[in-house]
């Protein structure tokens, strides 16, 4: 049976992890490759690097990070943040990334998703959807609206319709983040996760708000997510990935125990 994936997310700025494993066992808590190796040993199913480097001119740095990671860690790696054109994607894949996550560029130019999927295959194109509850009671399809620029800019786009459109254009996966829950540690937005997961036939990764192991369980069971992503609970060592998997396994969720 296909295992539900547990995915730690690492924020990388100028080649250093700014939100990563805060733990003494690492030689250097800021080195992305150290962090990747650590999560690999703990049994993470995938890794996501979110490049929050402010300047587009410094993108070579993340390529070097991906290259060093891919030489040591043999699991799927997704890179998101600042991806604007096909060259950005090609460079990341050549460096050893398996998938790229596209957010703002997809909203600015939806055909970019189609072009990317045609060029590189749907399997490596993830569309990141940042959404917030804004329109309860209005006549749009759902109460959730897509935001861009890291959640600062509203787009007026309905999140459920958007996810469906991204699937049609060739996205292989949706990385869904609740901007209402992100950073709160109150748990995923479960109704939104379930609505999006049911609206598309591609896998959905739930993100935003995880504070406990139960939140991860709820995201999978109630939210119907195919994978769950978290940063803080792993970063601050609230729980290890191994502990999370054992917990989920005991509750009957199919996971890969290592």
């Amino acid at each position: 049976m296909l295992a539900k994936r547990i995915i730690p997310c690492l924020d990388v700025k100028d080649g250093r992890v700014v939100k990563g494993v805060n733990f003494v066992n690492l030689r250097d808590a800021g080195d992305p490759v150290d962090n990747a190796r650590f999560y690999d040993a703990e049994g993470a199913d995938e890794l996501v690097f979110l490049d929050i480097t402010a300047s587009h001119e410094r993108r070579d740095i993340i390529l070097e990070v991906v290259e060093r990671t891919a030489a040591e860690v043999f699991m799927p790696v997704t890179v998101g943040g600042g991806i604007r054109d096909l060259d950005d994607i090609r460079n990341l894949l050549n460096a050893g990334a398996d998938k790229v996550s596209i957010n703002t560029a997809a909203v600015n130019k939806p055909d970019f998703v189609r072009a990317a999927a045609e060029k590189f295959g749907s399997q490596c194109i993830v569309v990141a959807v940042d959404a917030k509850r804004t329109r309860a009671g209005s006549d749009s399809e759902s109460p959730w609206e897509v935001f861009i620029h890291g959640g600062r800019t509203p787009t007026g786009i309905d999140a459920v319709a958007w996810a469906r459109k991204m699937e049609t254009l060739g996205s292989g996966e949706i990385l869904l983040t609740s901007m209402d829950r992100d950073g709160t540690q109150e748990g995923f937005d479960l109704p939104m996760t379930q609505a999006i997961s049911r609206a598309v036939t591609i896998p959905v990764i739930a993100s935003g708000g995880v504070g406990t192991m139960e939140h991860l369980y709820d995201g999978i069971v109630q939210g119907e997510a195919d994978a769950v992503l978290a940063a803080s609970i792993f970063h601050y060592r609230t729980h290890s990935i191994r502990e999370v998997k054992q917990y989920l396994h005991a509750k009957g969720v199919p996971v890969r125990l290592v």
């Binding site: 296909l2 295992a3 199913d45 959905v204 994978a227």
Partner: peptide, 8 residues
């Protein structure tokens, strides 16, 4: 879901 994506 299709693709079949993940660990099996």
């Amino acid at each position: 879901k299709i693709p079949h994506m993940g660990w099996n």
